[in-house]
Simulated assay, not measured.
Amino acid sequence: PAAVVYRVPSADSAVDLANASPFGLAGTVFSDDLDKAKKLAERLDTGMVWINSTSRSAPDLPFGGVKRSGVGRELAKFGINEFANKKLIRTPQL
């Protein structure tokens, strides 16, 4: 694995830079201000965001990305639906 680090002038610039990527698997926000970090995490166009931690998952948590990093989720109740074949049968109202 490799990581690229960019220096940007503001949090808004960091969000713009991150969201400009064609990929969106996951991101991490580091901050001493937890409320500010949560608001920033909500603005990231990724499938997952960790706050003050590196990527850590568990079987009971959904895992997946957006954009060119995939569609849908694995694991947890969201993952089960990805592997289920569902059928809609509808009859007209009389």
Score class of each variant (00 low, 15 high):
Val49Met: 02
Val15Gly: 03
Phe30Glu: 12
Gly24Ala: 03
Tyr6Met: 03
Gln93Lys: 11
Ser69Cys: 05
Lys87Ala: 10
Val49Lys: 00
Leu61His: 10
Ser21Gly: 11
Gly79Thr: 14
Val66Glu: 09
Leu61Ala: 11
Pro92Trp: 14
Leu17Phe: 07
Phe30Ala: 09
Val8Ala: 00
Lys77Thr: 12
Leu44Cys: 03
Thr28Leu: 00
Pro9Asp: 07
Phe63Val: 14
Pro92Tyr: 14
Leu40Trp: 01
Pro22His: 14
Ala3Ser: 07
Arg7Met: 02
Phe83Trp: 15
Asp35Trp: 00
Lys36Trp: 04
Gly47Ser: 04
Met48Gly: 09
Val71Asp: 07
Ala2His: 15
Ser57Asn: 12
Asp32Cys: 02
Ser21Pro: 09
Asp16Trp: 01
Leu75Asp: 13
Ile80Thr: 08
Ser55Lys: 08
Ser69Asn: 04
Ile89His: 05
Gly70Arg: 02
Lys36Met: 05
Asp32Ser: 10
Lys67His: 13
Leu17Arg: 12
Arg56Gln: 10
Lys77His: 09
Ala11Glu: 08
Thr46Gly: 00
Lys67Ser: 08
Gly47Met: 06
Ala58His: 11
Ala11Arg: 07
Pro59Met: 12
Lys36Cys: 00
Val15Trp: 00
Lys38Glu: 10
Lys87Leu: 11
Leu94Ala: 14
Arg56Tyr: 05
Asp60Ala: 06
Gly65His: 05
Pro62Asn: 12
Lys39Leu: 08
Ile51Cys: 06
Gly24Tyr: 04
Gly64Leu: 07
Glu82His: 07
Arg56Phe: 04
Ala2Thr: 15
Trp50Met: 08
Asp32Lys: 08
Gly27Arg: 01
Gln93Asp: 05
Gln93Pro: 00
Trp50Thr: 03
Met48Glu: 13
Arg90Val: 14
Pro59Leu: 11
Asp45Gln: 13
Ser10Asn: 08
Leu34Ile: 15
Leu40Asp: 00
Glu42Phe: 08
Pro1Ser: 09
Glu42Pro: 00
Phe63Ser: 01
Pro22Trp: 13
Asn85Ile: 15
Leu25Trp: 10
Asn19His: 06
Arg56Ile: 12
Asn81Ser: 13
Asn19Ala: 04
Lys38Ser: 02
Ala14Leu: 00
Arg68Cys: 01
Ala3Gln: 12
Val66Cys: 05
Glu82Asn: 07
Gly24Cys: 01
Val29His: 02
Gly65Asp: 06
Arg73Val: 01
Arg73Asp: 02
Arg68Lys: 15
Thr46Glu: 04
Ser10Lys: 09
Gly72Gln: 08
Val29Trp: 02
Thr91Gln: 12
Pro9Asn: 05
Phe78Ala: 04
Pro22Phe: 10
Ala18Asn: 08
Asp12Glu: 15
Asp33His: 05
Ala76Asp: 15
Thr91Glu: 12
Asp35Met: 01
Leu75Asn: 15
Thr28Gln: 07
Ala76Thr: 14
Phe30Val: 14
Ala76Pro: 05
Asn85Gly: 00
Pro62Val: 09
Val29Lys: 04
Val8Leu: 03
Gly65Thr: 11
Ala18Ile: 09
Ser57Tyr: 09
Val71Ala: 06
Gly24Lys: 03
Thr28Val: 11
Ala14Ile: 01
Lys77Phe: 03
Phe30Tyr: 15
Phe63Gly: 01
Glu42Met: 10
Asn81Gly: 06
Met48Lys: 09
Tyr6Gly: 02
Glu82Phe: 06
Lys36Ala: 13
Asn85Tyr: 10
Gly79Ile: 12
Arg56Ser: 07
Gly70Phe: 02
Ala14Ser: 03
Leu25Ile: 11
Arg43Phe: 02
Ser31Lys: 01
Pro9Gly: 05
Gln93Phe: 14
Ile80Glu: 03
